[in-house]
């Protein structure tokens, strides 16, 4: 039946192909806002207005500096990609009924799962970089040039951490009927809880505890230190914590994915909408 001899790729090479090429293909297949007329308003314009709104509100009411709001909001807007993009990259498999064909393949699940995070991470970085850039251009946000690479590192770690959290939400979408409600709540809860608009110490104790296990909280704190002229040494503990939380969320996400895969086989829920 086959004139072409079908040969199997070596295991390591195939792992990285699924991770990089597969991750990108699935992003193109599942991310709703991929066309420029959807991407620009959703991933760039709306987050920009969020930054402008809070910076001008802060200035008008005198409750916080421009740096406070620019750093907080510019880092937080990566969750447009981290939360929504990652949820789409996983939960949409069920919505589009492509989950069964994928799970019927022998593909390595770690590569299949984590590879989806990479384009989401890049997209999140793009949104945050755009936020900082426009803030520098029109809001007179001026961190010292020396702090820029350190700020970039903080943004990278924070975006990766947020992507890990988004993976966990996306994994829930493999089982939950309406994960978008949860994603919406998560996005706005992060505005409140991660110290984006309200300093962490002003939150009630319980919410402070929640804030410490969420992504971005520590990254935003590190970003503010760096943007206001502190040395990297002062920000390192926050960056490490952010990284640790991101890794923890990614591990939880993968365990949830495997759990729901097993549950799906047990209950037959893969294609039930």
């Amino acid at each position: 039946m086959s004139a072409v001899t079908v040969q199997r790729a070596n295991r390591t090479g195939n792992f990285w192909r699924i991770f990089f090429v597969g991750g990108l293909i699935s992003y193109r297949a599942l991310f709703y806002w991929i066309t420029p007329w959807q991407y620009i308003p959703t991933m760039l314009a709306a987050p920009l207005f969020q930054i402008l709104f809070f910076v001008y509100l802060g200035r008008a009411t005198g409750v916080g500096s421009t740096t406070f709001f620019v750093v907080g909001n510019s880092i937080q807007i990566c969750s447009m990609s981290g939360i929504y993009g990652m949820t789409m990259a996983l939960a949409n498999e069920r919505q589009f009924q492509t989950l069964s064909p994928i799970l019927a393949t022998p593909a390595n699940r770690i590569a299949l799962f984590l590879g989806r995070g990479l384009p989401v991470l890049v997209s999140g970085l793009q949104t945050t970089a755009f936020g900082f850039l426009v803030s520098a251009l029109i809001l007179n946000f001026r961190p010292s040039p020396k702090a820029l690479p350190e700020l970039a590192l903080t943004v990278l770690v924070s975006t990766a951490s947020c992507t890990g959290f988004g993976m966990a939400l996306g994994s829930l979408g493999l089982r939950a009927r309406d994960i978008w409600l949860t994603a919406n709540i998560a996005y706005f809860a992060m505005l409140l809880l991660c110290g984006v608009e309200v300093p962490l110490h002003q939150l009630p104790g319980v919410l402070q505890v929640v804030a410490h296990v969420l992504p971005l909280t520590h990254g935003i704190a590190a970003g503010r230190l760096l943007a206001s002229g502190h040395h990297l040494g002062a920000a390192w503990p926050y960056i490490w914590e952010e990284l640790g939380i991101g890794v923890a969320w990614a591990v939880i996400a993968f365990l949830l994915f495997r759990y729901f895969e097993r549950e799906g086989r047990r209950t037959g829920s893969f294609d039930r909408l």
């Binding site: 079908v6 790729a9 195939n14 192909r17 297949a29 492509t98 393949t105």
Partner: peptide, 24 residues
């Protein structure tokens, strides 16, 4: 259902070729 509508037929197959570990 069960196909990636926004992708071409080629990309749908490319993706599954990797998932089935076909030699690139």
């Amino acid at each position: 259902r069960g196909l990636y509508d926004r992708l071409s037929a080629l990309d749908n197959l490319r993706y599954f070729a990797d998932l089935y570990a076909l030699e690139p």
